[in-house]
Design a protein around this nucleic acid. Structure first.
Length: 494
RNA sequence: GCUGCCAUCGUCUAGCGGUUUAGGACAUCGCCCUCUCAAGGCGGAGAUCACGGGUUCAAAUCCCGUUGGCAGCGCCA
């Protein structure tokens, strides 16, 4: 099939979910792999729940993730606006086909109230039958319709669903699935307010937009027979369908707020890289034969295929995402991480966190902590001591290392000696400093650790941190000695 | 309730009838490296392939059933 055209069609009624992003991603990957087009269509026909904010969230998330779409209603040169169904409704795109079906006798107005329909369904369910609208308005005469309308009743338009035979779906992922037509009811295609319903607008747009493949969540599979019926009624050729497996939360239920972050943008706020999220999501429901885990987005595009999409649902695992994020960060240069970090500060309005920090020092500090960063948001806490005027001595570190009963005297000696001797040191490189520390240990007949640890705590205030001597080198002689003296004054001067 | 989908280590998965003592990854545990924390390296534990029947010389792989999970059943999308 040439000229593959696929779409992501979210409804703007809330945040963009992980599950939605996965669907968008697979559509995107498929289109790019086939050298086709990826389209974004906002399904905003639910006037009560669609919000502008939600549209913004979707658009921002898509852009952040790099899931750019290739087309829109306008002819903008660089960035397309997506399609909006309500805009298309205003252009009378859908009504035309509603009329068409009405004229062909394949649809009819229904005057039943929602309450009446609801009662029918409940009744059916009570009798262990599939809940259906019973089709009572199907055979209303023109006379009766006029009567209803004169009573001021409003109508919805229902589609006349064939009640016999089966509707067969040849799904690209799941194979052949058959649905008994007797289970379908005459569903609404246009609401009383003149807005088309999802199952209708979706078909009209997919056809008009020349979609070749519909990749969507498994939860849509039972909508498919209805949509197939519309295609048939209109005499249209169908796209191929492919239903993706669901993503569940750790408790086996569909992913929701209870499982932590559900909006993609929350992950951005946490300091995840878009490529980590992309890579992780690609692994849910898709795999390569060799079970490769780490991919660049280009590789994903290159290797993606529907044939290798799985059928069973998967559980979202935050731990693996976190690992992947660390992997992605580690694969970057300190310079790149710095720039990602600055973007993150701007995005989260946290620029204040590094006010007064020397950029160059920050970059080098990032280089020293390179392997440890799992989330961008961790960077400040990892390196802030480099920029502190007063060393913030973490109590635990001090007690454990400096004031420990057994090594207190040694720690004091090491610091006092170091303050003196380092002052005279000309070569302040990491190598030279390490040599100095080892020599001191040897001379005083103590263990190297007994020199290293007090120095680390005195200088940084903590027991953990970057390589001690690189840290000292980066701080410079003056600052190191200043800090050692702070520690001496604070803990050893009576 | 009805209908549909699904079922391999805790999790993501490889596997499409014999090459499997079921492979990889995350998590977990241990060891090594080491100035701490990481990262990295090595290794361990972890799956009677949901269960029960078939088909076959041979089944995780094919068929049927059971059970369980999930989804859908709107003038929501």
């Amino acid at each position: 099939m040439d000229n593959v055209r696929v779409r992501f069609a979210p409804s703007p009624t809330g945040d963009l979910h992980i599950g939605g992003v996965r669907t968008a991603l697979f559509n995107y990957l498929y289109s790019k792999n086939k050298n086709g087009k990826f389209i974004l269509r906002i399904e905003d026909t639910d006037r009560a729940r669609s919000t502008k904010e939600s549209v913004e969230v979707i658009l921002n998330a898509m852009k952040w993730l790099g899931l750019t779409w290739d087309e829109g209603p306008g002819n903008e040169a660089t960035e397309y606006a997506p399609y909006y169904q309500m805009e298309r409704k205003e252009k009378n795109i859908y009504i035309k086909y509603v009329d068409d079906l009405l004229n062909k006798g394949l649809a009819y107005p229904c005057y039943c109230t929602p309450e009446e329909v609801d009662a029918m369904r409940k009744e059916a369910q009570k009798n262990k039958l599939p809940p259906k609208y019973d089709g009572r308005c199907r055979h209303l005469t023109l006379e009766q319709r006029k009567q209803k309308e004169s009573e001021g009743k409003t109508a919805v338009i229902r589609f006349k669903t064939p009640q016999e035979g089966v509707t067969r779906l040849d799904d690209l992922i799941r194979g052949i699935v058959e649905f008994d037509n007797s289970l379908l009811d005459d569903f609404v295609i246009m609401k009383a307010n003149g807005v088309p319903t999802y199952n209708f607008a979706c078909v009209i747009d997919d056809y008009l937009m020349k979609m070749t493949h519909i990749l969507r969540g498994d939860d849509h599979i039972s909508n498919t027979p209805k949509q197939i019926q519309i295609y048939n009624a209109l005499g249209w050729e169908m796209p191929r369908f492919a239903h993706l497996s669901m993503i569940l939360g750790s408790d086996g239920a569909r992913l929701s707020k209870r499982h932590g972050h559900t909006s993609v943008l929350d992950y951005r706020k946490e300091g995840y890289l878009q490529e980590a999220l992309i890579n992780y999501l690609a692994l849910l429901g898709w795999s390569t034969q060799d079970s490769q885990q780490i991919f660049t987005t280009e590789e994903l595009i290159d290797k993606f295929s529907l044939e290798r999409c799985g059928v069973s649902p998967s559980t979202f695992d935050p731990a693996k995402l976190l690992w992947l994020n660390g992997e992605k960060i580690r694969s970057k240069t300190p310079e790149e991480i710095y720039s990602l970090f600055v973007d993150w500060l701007r995005y989260t309005n946290n620029e204040g966190l590094i006010s007064g920090w020397n950029n160059n020092l920050l970059k080098q500090a990032i280089a020293l902590e390179h392997d440890k960063i799992k989330l961008l948001k961790e960077i400040p806490e990892l390196v802030d001591f480099f920029f502190a005027k007063d060393v913030d001595y973490k109590e635990e570190a001090v007690v454990k290392t400096l004031l420990n009963e057994k090594s207190k005297l040694i720690a004091e000696m090491v610091l006092i000696e170091s303050a003196k001797r380092l002052l005279l040191k000309e070569d302040f490189s990491a190598d030279a400093l390490e040599q100095y520390a080892r020599d001191l240990a040897k001379e005083k007949e103590i263990k190297t650790g007994q020199v290293f640890h007090p120095l680390r705590v005195a200088i940084s205030g903590r027991t953990q941190g970057p390589s001690l001597f690189h840290m000292m080198e980066l701080m410079g002689k003056e600052e190191v000695i200043r800090r050692i003296n702070i520690a001496v004054n604070k803990f050893f001067r009576k």
